[in-house]
Amino acid sequence: MFNSKKTMIAGLVALAAGATLTGCNETAPKASAAEASDVSRIAYLDPAIHGDKFGTREEKRNNPDHPYSSEVAGETGSDQCRTPSGFTEVWDSAEKHMNSAHSTYGYGQPISESAITGDWRLSALGDGTNLPPEGVGDTIARGEELFQMYCAACHGEFAEGNGHYLPLAGGPTDMTDNGGPMPVKTISNYWPYAISWFDYARRAMPFFQPNHPDIGDAGYLAITGWVAYTGGYTTIDGQEIDEDTFFDSKLLVKLNEEVKAKNNVNYFCDPRPEVHNVRCGLNGDKCPDAVVGNGKGEIKFKEALINPVTGLPQYNTNQRP
């Protein structure tokens, strides 16, 4: 992967650096490692190249060729992300390590891929790799029984949460910032992959005995089905589901597509750097209002309330972030 990326990056950097790298073609910046690293960093910071911004989130999402886009070409929509090609020092170093010769130390012991099973193969990837075979599962009604037995104490009888243990399902549909408390994030309104509900429940729950043998793969799938059903996913692939529905990996993969279409589409790969400052205000210079105080040049600020009795700051400590 590094060779093809490298060619692309070299092109991008040469393109981006333009005037400053006069005479460089796409095989160009190949001096010493240190120099190569400097070249990339100059490209990064040079306002002549990127102006006062490193590109907006939308520009980067729609154009994986942007040097500071983390999106992967052909994958826009954030299923795969990467380090932006503009961070050439990362790519250069990785490529160097990948391509340098390696002769076996021989300190490890070979192990068969087939010996890596059970608790050593918990990872159910976003594309369905490592899910239990079709036909392993149980009814959603059984999932509810297991949930009440193993999960409800913390998560609530209806997955509505319990005190500090936040709701698993439901929550607001409007996730925009209205200035109030952060919208609670649930499988209904936020989690982008249904497969990860199963993956996480099996690997880490119940909290005090994860990957519980009495639940097993079939039980974890049934619980996943019930939580989905409770969380409003009552139709999967055009078929209504109910308590008698047998929930297995085949249904989970279909549910995964429903959830991706609903929530995963709201995800971006990392757009940073997209907010940055300028080194103003030095040696008699004065910073512009936009980066002074409240962003309008005024020293207006929020502070913690002062307790009228003690005269000490009364910090808002009962609100979870």
Partner: peptide, 15 residues
């Protein structure tokens, strides 16, 4: 393929 784990989707993601 990334795992798309809970710790990199529902958590450790920025709304």
């Amino acid at each position: 393929e990334p795992l798309q784990h809970r710790e990199e989707t529902s958590k450790y993601s920025e709304l």
